[in-house]
């Protein structure tokens, strides 16, 4: 808890409390891996239980899925650039890339919500079948995470405007960056084991 500052390190690693927070967040991400792993387990067990309702082939549109995927992939890249600029101590670069990241993320959420509305109009709701229950829950949880991330990153951006780049704001930015990349990692698996798998079957 002592504030022994080590200026040889990047801002986000300079204080002991920052190092604790970053490690703590990694451990939290470990828990998140298992949380999503469980949702994937549920999805994998229930993914052929349509109860007479629609199937993946009836619903999935590869074009929309690819747009969502590329939006999120690109946002992960721009988020990486934001952290890169932060380590160059370039506040404006950081803010620019971070805001682009969030816009891409918002685009993703917009697409996903539209996708869900579309499914519901086709009569595919959470209550239709076990497959759709698990589909909406897995994707909904991911989408909720992305939305939370947007709100959270907005708070951090406000704080960077208020306080500039300090060890504390740098740590917060770094952690939201980790979170954002992680959500992209989860999406890779959703893309593979939900969409591609569903369309191949």
């Amino acid at each position: 808890m002592s504030a022994n500052v080590n200026t040889a390190l990047p801002l986000e690693y300079q204080t002991e409390q920052n190092r604790l927070n970053i490690l703590g967040f990694w451990v939290f991400l470990g828990a998140e891996i298992i949380l999503f792993g469980t949702l994937f387990a549920v999805y994998s067990v229930l993914n052929a239980r349509f109860a007479g309702g629609p199937t993946p082939k009836d619903l999935f549109e590869i074009k929309d899925v690819m747009i969502e995927t590329i939006l999120l992939l690109t946002s992960s890249f721009t988020c990486g650039l934001a952290i890169y600029e932060m380590r160059r101590n370039n506040k404006n670069g950081l803010l620019l890339w971070l805001i682009i990241t969030l816009l891409l993320g918002a685009g993703f959420v917009f697409m996903e919500v539209n996708e869900f509305i579309h499914y519901v109009h086709e009569g595919a709701t959470m209550q239709t079948s076990a497959w759709l229950s698990s589909f909406f829950t897995l994707l909904g949880t991911h989408g909720l995470h992305v939305s939370m991330g947007i709100g959270w990153a907005t708070m951090v951006i406000i704080q960077i405007f208020q306080r500039g780049l300090t060890p504390v704001t740098a740590r917060k930015t770094f952690i939201i960056g980790l979170y954002w990349h992680f959500l992209d990692v989860v999406w890779i698996f959703i893309f593979t084991f939900v969409y591609l798998q569903g369309m191949v079957r």
Binding site: L46, A51, S133
Partner: peptide, 29 residues
Amino acid sequence: FPIFTVALALMTLDRIFGTHFFTLSGGGM
């Protein structure tokens, strides 16, 4: 604990929001 978090969330969805994870109808298991 994340596993339990998910299990309880699915139970809540089944009981309050009418999903079919663990029900006998709708393909649940």
